[in-house]
Design a protein around this nucleic acid. Sequence first.
DNA 1: TGACTAACTCACTAGAGAGTTAATATAAGC
DNA 2: GCTTATATTAACTCTCTAGTGAGTTAGTCA
Lengths: 232, 232
Amino acid sequence: MSSAAKPKRKRLTKAEQRAETIEQILDTAEYLFSKHGLYGVTLKDVAKRVGVHHTLLNYYFEDKKKLFDAVFERRAVVTSERRMRVLDEYDKKTKGKPTVEGALRAFLDTDLDLYIEGGEGWRNYAALASQVANTPEWGAEMMDQHFDPVVLRLIDLLKKALPDCSEEDIFWGYHFVTGALMLTLARTGRIDKLSNGLCESDDFLAVKERMASFMAAGFVAVCKQQKAKRKS
Amino acid sequence: MSSAAKPKRKRLTKAEQRAETIEQILDTAEYLFSKHGLYGVTLKDVAKRVGVHHTLLNYYFEDKKKLFDAVFERRAVVTSERRMRVLDEYDKKTKGKPTVEGALRAFLDTDLDLYIEGGEGWRNYAALASQVANTPEWGAEMMDQHFDPVVLRLIDLLKKALPDCSEEDIFWGYHFVTGALMLTLARTGRIDKLSNGLCESDDFLAVKERMASFMAAGFVAVCKQQKAKRKS
DNA sequence: TGACTAACTCACTAGAGAGTTAATATAAGC
DNA sequence: GCTTATATTAACTCTCTAGTGAGTTAGTCA
């Protein structure tokens, strides 16, 4: 630990100390990875910021990629389970008669709330996730691994809400939804400049307000369009 | 050049040779950058694949970042101008009365066509662009620099098509559109696994078919929703 | 033909980056 | 209080990387 931090709380058991150090490493790595990506960050960068020797990261996480995985997994598990629970609840509440917008709200708003209320750490994780999602190399695999169950749960509800819609249309619709969500999480600042400050990348509330209804209408429109096309 | 390639076409003027080598470097760099990102690729990786000495890349492009910029710019300019032209034509054709879907088709379909018909190079560029778009660091700036004019032209048409819609709603709608488009361009293979092979990341035609109508309906729905909210 | 110049390579440098192993300090447990 | 386990650092290694500057080859043009 940094010498500045040490004298303050001397009364920490070893296990507590360990947990705290690990958490600090994860937070810092999360922040840096979200800004510069896996290859854009060195273990020394992270260690320096935390105030520990860089080999300590090897000690706790074996190697760089495993540190990255640990960073990602820490919160991915939380948001995945949380959304799964809310989707289940929603399904029960609507007694097997979900609406498109309702299902999307259970999925999207639940996630966005986490980033709105969860503090900086959660927002950094969000930006990281958006990078992972757009990385074909190993990113898609990480997404599969952590999010397939929730996503399939959502798809399931959407199918129920749109019984005469083809599966393709639903999968493509979901694809559009994630794309939009991921760009939101990246908070690139692009919309700020484009709109001359009218909209802000950080304004997840504005997104939450609009996204589910926007996408729900999209689903309905595409289903109708494709149904018409099949007839002709 | 690699000794294997040399004897084949001896009758090349120096300028032709130069142009060809540069093009090969750009193509290869484009491919590798699209797969692994700026930091995930070394100049040697690129040089080896082309069959030239790695310092040749410094000779032609000064440094690594400038090579990256050159790769991006080469096609960004083309697609930007192309879409601008099509948007202008559409505006004229509809005599200042565009529709949301029409404007979106002019923007989206024009781009997607390029990747459908343009060969592998264009698809690699597309994947690269999607990474750039989700990189807050320097990515957003690159996007601003190359695409602000076309995007503002599109926004302009959308405003005309939705005269009683607030600007915020239009900007957020555009944000959703790019997000979805960028994830499409990344071709991560995720939708393939998720849908058990029913949908394919490479199937830009399927996206083209659905995207504009999906998004158009989203715009309309959000505008209506927000208008109702303002009244209450 | 011969000077000139553009294309391209070679041998290096200077430094970074990940990771290993041995040493040290400190707290835990008996 | 002594031993052991754990956290942490220091010293090092080994590989790779971007980039430089001098050199070589081969078209080009007067």
